[in-house]
Design a binder for these strands. Structure first.
Lengths: 226, 226
DNA sequence: ATCACTCCGATTGTCGACAATCCGTAGCCA
DNA sequence: TGGCTACGGATTGTCGACAATCGGAGTGAT
């Protein structure tokens, strides 16, 4: 599983994960104020560890802190998401190019199997859209790992990943894009098998651009409705 | 100035900046253990704020924390730096491409003037290599700002920036590359003036590749000496 | 001599209480 | 009536002390 296990570490780490989960799933609304005392009580810990967790989330850009005024859940407005997808395109494109020369044949084959499971899940039922999203993220994460660039993995894994998941939750209602996305994934794997880094990068960039267009349209509709 | 002012904010923020400075300048050696009580005493604060600062630095990848075993200054080995420069190439290339279409004429002119000051400083004396480095970082940061992509600015500014400065300190002894670097900077500004994003990106990527080659050779020599 | 165990000092992790700061409200004055 | 000021509650920022955990020295048995 991608989501790190409950983590036996320090309370601050546990709090960070629980908070991240609550934020990503929308349990904590965007822009909501985060009261330290209240959260500490809810998690059954003191305010010290919780404050450390907030600092951590601040680094992940999941919350925004203002000195003497507390922390608020970040708001994913259109501009922020546009910036995110722009950066993602550059980073994941790079990851794909590197993965084409760095991944082992076995790893690429594994990636193909991941897509098989993914396809089956879609056929079986479009209901569990969420599972699709997670699977999709898994796909992207595996490619990041394939780049063998630790910094890239960190950026795509730990940081943007959370914002991405958050975005997915907001927009997970439209499952229309799952099938074209799967096809694009297959094309990417094919390029990786052929060890064609340039093509793999190009395909990944287009894939992400497509995802952004889809998200963008949805935001338009939302804004129009409001 | 690029370095944020001492910051009147919370003690944790102050501690984070002072620690970051100490780490970047090498005052705190790579891999050195960071004793909470000792640092807290040195900074004249309690351990609480200091722990928050360490969490912050952990997010910036300046320190690495191990549960129940404390925090250590990160070690910039060859692989880490290689990864860093790879990511930089992708991100700064992207920033350059965007900047070509987003920066105002005035901003680009300002960039040119920055290079003039830079050149003068080099002519006047190659002694203050550090100033050169800071000026160089300033150049890169201005371009990041020119991209109008907030996430990009954050990544290049707050995070990688510190690691970069750390790297510069280690390798600041060789000032040989200042002049070719300046020329490359000029070329980039020229491309920006012509609003040629593709060219600007290409030039920036080459510039960073060149910087990496230079750094890489230096590391080789260091390792050979050791 | 080597390995394993135990104990101890040191360091980290956590908590509760206190001080500083900010936001909103109510009151006062022009 | 409008705006400025002073106050009060709530929230954040900070500290010191206590508990939990880890690393290492020392000891003893094989």
């Amino acid at each position: 599983m991608l989501v790190k296990v409950p983590e036996q570490g320090t309370l601050a780490d546990i709090a960070a994960h629980r908070l991240a989960h609550s934020i990503v799933t929308g349990e904590l609304a965007q822009g909501q104020k985060l009261n330290e005392a209240e959260l500490a009580e809810r998690f059954g810990m003191g305010r010290g560890p919780l404050r450390e967790a907030l600092r951590h989330l601040e680094g992940m850009r999941l919350v925004k802190r203002i000195p003497n005024a507390g922390a608020r859940v970040v708001v994913l407005d259109r501009k922020t998401l546009a910036d995110l997808y722009g950066v993602r395109e550059a980073l994941e494109g790079m990851a794909c190019r590197l993965a084409a020369s760095q991944m082992t044949d076995d790893e690429i084959a594994q990636l193909g199997k991941l897509l098989d499971r993914h396809e089956e899940q879609i056929k079986k039922q479009g209901g569990k859209v969420y599972a699709q999203s997670e699977g999709d993220l898994d796909f992207h994460y595996q490619i990041a790992r394939g780049s063998r660039n630790q910094m890239l993995m960190d950026m795509l894994g730990s940081e943007q990943y959370q914002l991405l998941r958050m975005c997915r939750y907001r927009t997970s209602r439209n499952a229309q894009r799952t099938k074209p996305a799967l096809n694009q994934h297959r094309q990417i794997v094919q390029a990786l098998q052929q060890r064609d880094g340039e093509l793999a990068e190009l395909l990944m960039r287009r894939h992400i651009q497509g995802a952004w267009r889809s998200i963008s349209e949805m935001i338009d509709k939302e804004e129009q409705a409001a």
